[in-house]
Amino acid sequence: EPLWIRPDAPSRCTWQLGRPASESPHHHTAPAKSPKILPDILKKIGDTPMVRINKIGKKFGLKCELLAKCEFFNAGGSVKDRISLRMIEDAERDGTLKPGDTIIEPTSGNTGIGLALAAAVRGYRCIIVMPEKMSSEKVDVLRALGAEIVRTPTNARFDSPESHVGVAWRLKNEIPNSHILDQYRNASNPLAHYDTTADEILQQCDGKLDMLVASVGTGGTITGIARKLKEKCPGCRIIGVDPEGSILAEPEELNQTEQTTYEVEGIGYDFIPTVLDRTVVDKWFKSNDEEAFTFARMLIAQEGLLCGGSAGSTVAVAVKAAQELQEGQRCVVILPDSVRNYMTKFLSDRWMLQKGFLKEEDLTEKKPWWWHLRVQELGLSAPLTVLPTITCGHTIEILREKGFDQAPVVDEAGVILGMVTLGNMLSSLLAGKVQPSDQVGKVIYKQFKQIRLTDTLGRLSHILEMDHFALVVHEQIQYHSTGKSSQRQMVFGVVTAIDLLNFVAAQERDQK
């Protein structure tokens, strides 16, 4: 057995438009009618409502009807409940999964919650491996369901041993009777949507819809739904939504950006999952974080739909894509998950301010006199920076000697690579993860907040409520011999709460 199987392995699926269902090699399930009293909570997966979006479509000038398939009504709160249950049931049916076995899954959280929910009911041990950027709410729900959680670096490539995929496979090879159901490759993922989600949409719309818009992560949702719609409703256009920084969209030119990270969760990847059939997507749109969270908040405030950030991405694209539809036509959007997962993220004004998705003037509360002053007023001194090749031991000596707790790590040209902190280095040394002679590049981390000289002290204040420091950066445009230009970030300084307090105190003292 291989040590790991690539999540982007070539698909062996034989589905073709027009091929009889009787030739399918898979076990198919028909939607079942729910009894009045459910035998367990797993029976509350599927049969989610279709809700008309009344205000947002009109606000953006849509002539067509805009409908939302509300997947956050599933038992675990997301569309991923469907595939989690289906993968477990299919693994039980073919004898792969037996009582007492362990389920391991690399996930952005929602599939993990679905699997942990099913594992709690069915009696399996469950280990979820997820990147650090995923919300604390997801972690809390997983723990409450009895799952064990392993976190991995957000910026690790999918084929790196440190990625959530790599760590999951390492655990599988170490733990007896453990299984990775593997949402990236498992046919049960798109089949769950082909058999149930798509049929529900067709039934709820009486077979009449002209466009379907869905955000894409593993691709199982859009693949399964689109294949069924292509068979039953061939005139329906399928629109895929991919965040900026991901590479799922086609044509490839759409993916060209210097951005590699994004805040919206559960969609987009740096590889093409095996289950994603991009041939059934008629057109791709890219979405960005700001519009995703703005539209998610709009869905909550104006439509009462308590959905997550990827739902915002989907609707932001839908109001663009559906401009081509006329009166009497219908566009369906998939709202994948609930706001429950993001209470401390985009639902929080403070978080939105820190990330730059909300401006101070958007909030009406009274601010102190210094709130709208610029960061450049602080008069920061030149920063202490270190090269990635310097040793951890030497870096600790320098920081202690100069009285700093942290320093930016830059390359020879001064471009920011990340940050090192005294606390992080000492804990890594004590844990045996690094040696004093190791290069400081081994303990770089990139989960820090950046701020510009033109940003306000109010925004800085919000950042420092949650973080010990902020890195002050400025952009530099560099022209190359080819005539092309590129933008790079340079370090201007490091600012802490002490710097802000000293500035405010000094100004008030001078005024007296």
Results as ranks from 00 to 15, higher is better:
Ile238Lys: 04
Ile238Ser: 02
Ile239Phe: 08
Ile239Lys: 04
Ile239Val: 05
Gly240Ser: 03
Val241Pro: 03
Asp242Glu: 06
Asp242Asn: 04
Pro243Gln: 01
Glu244Ile: 10
Gly245His: 01
Ser246Ala: 06
Ile247Gln: 07
Ala249Val: 02
Glu250Trp: 07
Glu250Cys: 08
Glu250Ser: 05
Glu252Thr: 15
Glu252Asp: 14
Glu253Thr: 09
Glu253Gln: 14
Leu254Ile: 05
Leu254Ala: 09
Leu254Asn: 06
Asn255Ile: 00
Gln256Phe: 11
Gln256Met: 09
Thr257Tyr: 08
Thr257Leu: 10
Glu258Ala: 07
Glu258Phe: 13
Gln259Cys: 11
Gln259Leu: 13
Thr260His: 10
Thr261Gly: 05
Thr261Glu: 11
Glu263Gly: 05
Gly266Asp: 01
Gly266Thr: 01
Gly266Leu: 03
Gly266Tyr: 02
Ile267Asp: 06
Gly268Trp: 00
Tyr269Glu: 06
Asp270Ile: 02
Asp270Pro: 03
Phe271Trp: 03
Phe271Val: 01
Pro273Gly: 00
Pro273Met: 00
Thr274Gly: 02
Thr274Lys: 05
Leu276Glu: 01
Leu276Ile: 07
Asp277Tyr: 02
Asp277Phe: 01
Arg278Ala: 01
Arg278Trp: 05
Val280Phe: 06
Val280Ile: 04
Val281Phe: 07
Lys283Gly: 05
Lys283Cys: 15
Phe285Gly: 10
Phe285Gln: 05
Ser287Ile: 07
Ser287Val: 08
Asp289Ile: 00
Asp289Leu: 00
Glu290Val: 14
Glu291Tyr: 09
Glu291Trp: 06
Ala292Glu: 08
Thr294Phe: 15
Phe295His: 03
Arg297Asp: 02
Arg297Pro: 01
Met298Trp: 08
Leu299His: 03
Leu299Gly: 03
Leu299Lys: 03
Ile300Met: 08
Ile300Leu: 03
Ala301Ile: 12
Ala301Leu: 14
Glu303Ala: 04
Glu303Tyr: 02
Gly304Phe: 00
Gly304Gln: 00
Leu305Thr: 00
Leu305Asn: 01
Cys307Gly: 07
Cys307Gln: 06
Gly308Pro: 01
Gly308Ser: 00
Gly308Arg: 00
Ser310Asn: 06
Gly312Lys: 00
Ser313Leu: 01
Thr314Trp: 05
Thr314Pro: 10
Val315Asn: 07
Val315Met: 09
Val315Tyr: 05
Val315Cys: 10
Ala316Leu: 13
Ala316Gln: 13
Val317Glu: 10
Ala318Gly: 14
Lys320Tyr: 15
Ala321Met: 08
Ala322Ser: 07
Gln323Arg: 15
Gln323Gly: 10
Gln323Asp: 10
Glu324His: 13
Gln326Tyr: 12
Glu327Thr: 14
Gly328Leu: 10
Arg330Ser: 12
Arg330Pro: 08
Val332Gly: 00
Val332Arg: 00
Ile334Gly: 00
Leu335Val: 12
Pro336Thr: 06
Pro336Tyr: 02
Ser338Asn: 11
Val339Leu: 11
Val339Asn: 05
Arg340Gln: 07
Asn341Gln: 05
Tyr342Thr: 03
Tyr342Gly: 01
Met343Thr: 06
Met343Asn: 04
Thr344Met: 04
Thr344Leu: 02
Lys345Glu: 06
Phe346Gln: 04
Phe346Pro: 05
Leu347Ala: 07
Ser348Asp: 13
Asp349Glu: 11
Asp349Ser: 08
Asp349Cys: 03
Asp349Arg: 03
Asp349Met: 04
Arg350Lys: 14
Met352Val: 02
Lys355Glu: 10
Lys355Gly: 06
Gly356His: 07
Gly356Trp: 04
Phe357Thr: 02
Phe357Ser: 02
Leu358Cys: 07
Lys359Leu: 10
Glu361Asp: 12
Glu361Thr: 14
Asp362Lys: 14
Leu363Phe: 11
Leu363Ala: 06
Lys366Cys: 15
Trp369Ile: 08
Trp369Asp: 07
Trp370Met: 02
Trp370Asp: 01
Trp370Gly: 03
Trp371Arg: 09
His372Thr: 13
His372Glu: 13
Leu373Tyr: 15
Arg374Lys: 14
Arg374Leu: 12
Arg374Met: 11
Val375Tyr: 07
Gln376Ile: 07
Glu377Cys: 06
Glu377Pro: 09
Leu378Ile: 03
Leu378Glu: 06
Leu380His: 10
Ser381Asp: 13
Ala382Thr: 13
Pro383His: 05
Pro383Tyr: 08
Leu384Phe: 12
Thr385Trp: 03
Thr385Ile: 15
Thr385Leu: 11
Val386Lys: 06
Leu387Lys: 13
Leu387Phe: 15
Thr389Met: 15
Thr389Ala: 03
Ile390Pro: 07
Thr391Cys: 10
Cys392His: 04
Cys392Asp: 10
His394Tyr: 15
His394Thr: 10
Thr395His: 09
Thr395Glu: 04
Ile396His: 13
Ile398Ser: 14
Ile398Leu: 15
Ile398Met: 14
Ile398Lys: 12
Leu399Ser: 03
Arg400Leu: 11
Lys402Met: 15
Lys402Cys: 09
Lys402Gly: 13
Lys402Asp: 10
Phe404Met: 14
Phe404Asp: 03
Phe404Val: 09
Gln406Lys: 07
Gln406Glu: 11
Gln406Met: 06
Ala407Asn: 03
Pro408Ile: 02
Pro408Ser: 06
Val410Arg: 15
Val410Ile: 13
Val410Pro: 03
Asp411Leu: 09
Glu412Gln: 14
Glu412Asp: 14
Ala413Gly: 15
Ala413Glu: 13
Gly414Leu: 10
Val415Asp: 15
Val415Ser: 13
Val415Thr: 15
Ile416Asn: 07
Leu417Thr: 13
Gly418Glu: 04
Met419Ala: 15
Met419Phe: 15
Met419Ile: 14
Thr421Lys: 14
Thr421Asp: 07
Asn424Trp: 12
Met425Gln: 12
Leu426His: 15
Ser427Ala: 11
Ser427Arg: 10
Leu429Gln: 10
Ala431Asn: 12
Gly432Asp: 12
Lys433Ser: 08
Lys433Asp: 02
Val434Thr: 12
Val434Asp: 13
Gln435Pro: 12
Gln435Val: 14
Pro436Gln: 13
Ser437Pro: 05
Asp438His: 09
Gln439Asp: 09
Gln439Cys: 13
Gln439Ser: 09
Val440Pro: 11
Val440Ala: 09
Gly441Trp: 05
Lys442Gly: 06
Lys442Ser: 08
Val443Gln: 13
Ile444Met: 13
Ile444Phe: 02
Ile444Val: 14
Tyr445Leu: 13
Tyr445Ala: 08
Tyr445Lys: 08
Lys446Gln: 12
Lys446Pro: 09
Lys446Ile: 08
Lys449Cys: 11
Lys449Met: 12
Gln450Leu: 12
Gln450Cys: 13
Arg452Gln: 03
Arg452Gly: 13
Arg452Pro: 03
Leu453Cys: 12
Thr454Val: 15
Asp455Ile: 15
Asp455Trp: 10
Asp455Ala: 15
Thr456Ser: 08
Thr456Pro: 12
Leu457Phe: 12
Leu457Thr: 04
Gly458His: 08
Arg459Phe: 13
Leu460Tyr: 08
His462Ser: 08
His462Arg: 06
Ile463His: 07
Met466Val: 15
Met466Thr: 12
Asp467Glu: 15
His468Met: 13
His468Asp: 09
Ala470Pro: 08
Ala470Leu: 14
Leu471Pro: 14
Leu471Asn: 13
Val473Cys: 11
Val473Met: 15
His474Val: 12
Glu475Trp: 12
Glu475Ser: 04
Gln476Thr: 12
Gln478Thr: 15
His480Trp: 07
Gly483Trp: 13
Gly483Pro: 12
Lys484Asp: 03
Lys484Ala: 05
Ser485Trp: 15
Ser486Trp: 10
Ser486Ile: 14
Gln487Trp: 10
Gln487Met: 15
Met490Phe: 15
Gly493Ser: 14
Gly493Asn: 11
Val494Trp: 02
Val494Thr: 07
Val495Leu: 15
Val495Tyr: 10
Thr496Gly: 08
Ile498Phe: 08
Leu500Asn: 00
Leu501Tyr: 15
Asn502Tyr: 12
Val504Ala: 10
Val504Pro: 04
Ala505Trp: 02
Ala506Pro: 10
Ala506Phe: 15
Gln507Cys: 13
Arg509Ile: 07
Asp510Ile: 03
